[in-house]
């Protein structure tokens, strides 16, 4: 798939008045979208000033007093914030790894089913959870994991436990539950791109391997996996930058007071302090921290991607 990329686009006409006059429509539309982008996507960046101020809504940016790095110092001396960073990173990485493995596994195994009559319906079913909102998914999870829910029912019937487990009162269960929820929701959806990559593999490779007496396992291991490796790498690197963004909806909807210490993430911290307690400066500071870490992760991932790309060339 990576091989399909084209290097068109190299040609750009020089900026001349004549050329500009010819394409004034494009310039006007482009300018309109730039203004729109400046307002809705870039203007909020100006608000980062608040993190260095003791911002008072009545005074505004211009008249609020500057406090330097005081808000950041407060953040890093706050035990709750340190825990929140740990939770966000831990859940982000756990989710990334589990959803990745599940999607690749599912794609490979589904591809081994030769009959379209079975394959297609399974695939259609596998997309279903992606279309449900997190509200619905967490609601369903709450029911399934409640004391009278299906999971406790199964465990009791198998005589593995005597009394129902209260999954949402024990800190040990929360991270796995979140990882499971993500896998449940996105495995089928994420597998789409791998299935497309697998379909693009030259069937001759498999035929040749069969003649050499290769079984299914060796075909998967020596042909399928290496063939989709570029796709896996690209998606992995693209997702690393989003690790910190995976920490809001599920945790907010599934968490509760009993397990706050493992369920709260940076975004929830921002929501509690910034919106709940109206401390805009602190909320902004925590938000900046998250953005900066994300950008570092993206650049790190890109540097790695470059290296991986070079490796692929030779």
């Amino acid at each position: 798939m990576a091989g399909k990329r084209k290097n068109t686009d190299v040609y750009t006409p020089k900026f001349t008045l004549k050329e500009a006059k010819k394409q004034w429509v494009l310039l006007v539309i482009g300018a309109a979208f730039t203004i729109y982008g400046l307002i809705f996507y870039y203007a909020p960046l100006v608000g980062w000033i608040m993190a260095f101020q003791n911002y008072k809504p009545k005074k505004g940016f211009l008249h609020s007093s500057f406090v330097g790095l005081e808000k950041f110092k407060f953040l890093f001396s706050d035990d709750a914030f340190i825990k929140v960073i740990r939770n966000t990173l831990a859940m982000g990485v756990l989710n990334l790894v589990t959803t990745f493995i599940m999607a690749i596994l599912f794609a490979i195994l589904l591809n081994e089913i030769k009959s379209n009559l079975i394959k297609k319906p399974i695939q259609t079913i596998s997309y279903l959870p992606h279309f449900l909102s997190w509200i619905i998914v967490t609601g369903i999870l709450h029911d399934a994991l409640s004391s009278s829910g299906i999971i406790n029912e199964i465990l009791m019937n198998l005589k593995l436990i005597d009394t129902p487990i209260n999954f949402f009162a024990n800190t040990a269960y929360f991270w796995p539950i979140v990882a499971f929820a993500n896998c449940w929701k996105e495995t089928g959806w994420n597998a789409i791109i791998y299935l497309a990559a697998i379909t693009a593999i030259d069937p001759c490779l498999y035929e040749a391997a069969s003649i050499d007496g290769a079984g299914r396992f060796s075909k998967i291991w020596f042909i399928t996996l290496p063939s989709i490796k570029p796709t896996i790498m690209i998606l992995l690197l693209m997702n690393i930058g989003n690790v910190l963004n995976a920490g809001f909806e599920v945790q907010y909807l599934l968490g509760n007071g009993l397990i706050k210490s493992v369920s709260d993430t940076i975004d929830i911290y921002v929501l509690t302090w910034g919106v709940g307690n109206m401390d805009y400066s602190l909320g902004t500071a925590a938000g900046i921290f998250k953005s900066v870490v994300s950008i570092v992760l993206i650049f790190g991932a890109n540097a790695l991607a470059k290296r991986a790309g070079e490796e692929r060339l030779f």
Partner: peptide, 29 residues
Amino acid sequence: KRFIFKSQLSLFWVITMYVNGGMIPVLLL
């Protein structure tokens, strides 16, 4: 192909995929 600022305008929007002001500044805006 002939648009003079095509690469600049693309980049302008690609950046918004990765950098954002965060919850509080957006709320105030």
